[in-house]
Amino acid sequence: MRGIILARFTSFIRNPWLFALFTGMSIIFALIIGNFGADNEKVTVPVYGDEALQTDTIGTALAENEVYNFKWMKKEELEETIRRGNAEAGVNIEEDGYEMIVGIDSSNVKLMEQTVAGIYTDKIQGENLLAVSDAQTEEEKEELLAAFQQAKEEPVFKITNQSFHSSETFIYDNGLHSLFGFTLFFVIYTICYNVLPILIEKKAGVWDRMILSPMKKWEMYIANLIYSFFEGYLQVVIIFTVFRFIVGMDFQGKFLQILLLMIPYVFAIVSLAIFLTALVKNTQQFNAALPIVSVSMAMIGGAFWPIEIVQSEFLLALSKINPLTYGMEALNGLVIYNTPLDQLLMPISILLLMGVIFMGVGIHLMERRHV
């Protein structure tokens, strides 16, 4: 058994390209579909006005805004930007007021206007404060304005917001859903192509010759399944590690718990791969069946879109026998719904049960076919 595992590891080191392909595809698709980093980009708002205003109080406040990127440009350039649809609106900044130039009337435009109006309001309040104060020097005026700004940032009332959801509602996070879905989807290919050598070696008579040695048949199965589990789980660990430490996703502080949850899912997929291998007769049938099975599992199990939006009772019934469904349920429950790990025993138990059933039936069918 050790010899088989060692041989498989040696083969992996010499030819890791298939593993790298599926791992890379999982990361790339999750990054693209999940729009990672897009939420942190500021919305660009074109602005024009006198050059003196760019360094004035208004210009400084616009530059320090944390939501919008106010970009100064000429009037003709601003109008052309809005006309082409590259910006929803622009702002004409003046000393005593502003003018909104709207291209697309949307809720974002109203938020932009509120932001600009707030800046002008702060300026007017600051000027009124200086007018009624006895500040004489520039230092005194700056200290007074700084105290005024600090008072604004420390409100008198503190408001605590709480939200809740009923059992009929669901929370959707595009980034997490894409990451979970594509990770669970592509690991199916990695595991299945690692189980395929069992079929190839059986058809070629390699197992018949190995049985003549002191090695037992169950040891050959265990060795191949251990290696398939290892490579599939390694892919999952690499993907989540990349998103945790490179992309910067914190997973609500549950990174290690996620890796723990993936163990029963990977086990179930290894067992499913054994079952699929037992149903086909040759490599050609396997290559034809695998994409159909994997894509169907992803579509029905909620990897490509939330399963909560599916209305078909038939498809929902099929999802109950799909390991990917319970993998997504466990991950979403842990990270998105903050469900404690001990309350996720239902999907974990179902994945383990599926793994035992698929493996038992698969090995039985395989042995009957090759007797």
Rank of each mutant, 00 (worst) to 15 (best):
L290P: 02
N69R: 10
I82W: 04
S133H: 03
M299Q: 10
A273F: 06
S106P: 07
E80G: 06
V247I: 15
L353M: 13
M112L: 14
H165P: 00
P264N: 15
L344W: 04
G362I: 05
I211Y: 03
L130Q: 09
E367S: 09
R83A: 15
K74Q: 13
F255I: 04
L345Y: 05
K110Y: 10
G205F: 11
I238S: 03
I363D: 01
E139A: 10
I309W: 12
T60M: 12
F255A: 04
F170N: 03
A117F: 08
I58A: 07
Q235P: 02
E127W: 03
Q252L: 12
F267W: 13
E153Q: 10
E99L: 11
E168L: 14
I239E: 00
N92C: 07
D134S: 09
T57Y: 06
E79V: 09
K203Q: 08
G181P: 01
F9W: 15
L31C: 12
K75S: 14
T241Q: 06
V116A: 08
M100E: 05
A30G: 08
D250F: 01
T283E: 11
Q150W: 09
F148I: 06
N322Y: 14
I350N: 05
I159K: 08
T23L: 14
L316I: 11
I238Q: 00
S213V: 09
F243Q: 00
L53W: 02
Y326M: 14
S26D: 05
M112W: 04
Y172E: 10
Y227Q: 08
Q125S: 15
F245M: 09
N128W: 11
S167D: 14
S271T: 03
A61M: 11
E76A: 15
L290W: 06
L334A: 12
E231A: 09
F243C: 01
P155T: 14
M346A: 13
R2F: 15
V266T: 14
I13F: 13
M1G: 14
V237I: 15
L196W: 08
I5Q: 06
E76P: 08
E41W: 05
E64L: 12
T169L: 12
I200P: 02
N35I: 01
M249K: 02
L130K: 07
A89K: 01
K254G: 07
I350G: 06
I33P: 00
L31Q: 05
E51L: 06
E140C: 01
F182Q: 00
E139H: 01
L62R: 02
V43K: 02
G34L: 01
A268D: 08
G333A: 13
R2N: 15
S213E: 11
P155E: 13
L176D: 00
I348W: 01
W218C: 03
D173I: 02
S349T: 15
T283M: 04
P214Y: 07
E80S: 13
I222A: 13
P155L: 14
G126I: 05
E153H: 02
A289F: 07
L196V: 10
L184T: 05
A135W: 01
N338P: 00
D173H: 05
S178T: 00
E66F: 02
